[in-house]
Amino acid sequence: MNVIFYIASIIAIMATIMVITGRNAVHSLLFLTVSLLAVGVVFFTLGAPFMAALEVIIYAGAIMVLFVFVVMMLNLGKAYEKMEESWFSYKAWLGPGILCVILLGELIYVFTVTKGSSQPLTVITPQEVGMSLFGPYILGVELAAMLLMAGIIGAYHIGRKKQKEYHRFLQKEEESV
């Protein structure tokens, strides 16, 4: 089982690297899907089969489909790939890279300092999750429901139609000029 964990981890990391360095949005999305699936496997090895299923269905399934739709609607094409190429400079990567390496070093340090004992794997069943979700976390569930509602309405409102190019104040300024 450990072997599976490590293999899945390596796949997830490699796929993620491919995502953030990709030039073509569709390719990156496919790599992202791979990464998410690998994380799903990791969930499975951590004893959370229900989460693994949700990861595959919602993340890798629903959310990624949304992305693919949008990328298709935008239809960026070859010109954008060239532009991505020009944005892809060594200078842009240096600072963030250093910062993240520092952070990673610090996090690894934390994990090595607080080394706990390894323990047997216990599978937490969906039943337990459900009991917890609709027991002590019921308020959170209701809030999440409202959030999703707000997301739906917001997405509908924002994406409804082609809006004016400027804010009304700016527009007035534009007209006067």
Binding site: G95, P96, L99, C100, I102, L103, E106, Y109, V110
Partner: peptide, 16 residues
């Protein structure tokens, strides 16, 4: 975002 991350790094360093 870079500013945010820098602040995070500094804060984490101080805490650790």
């Amino acid at each position: 975002v870079c500013g945010l991350v820098l602040g995070m790094a500094v804060a984490l360093t101080i805490i650790l």
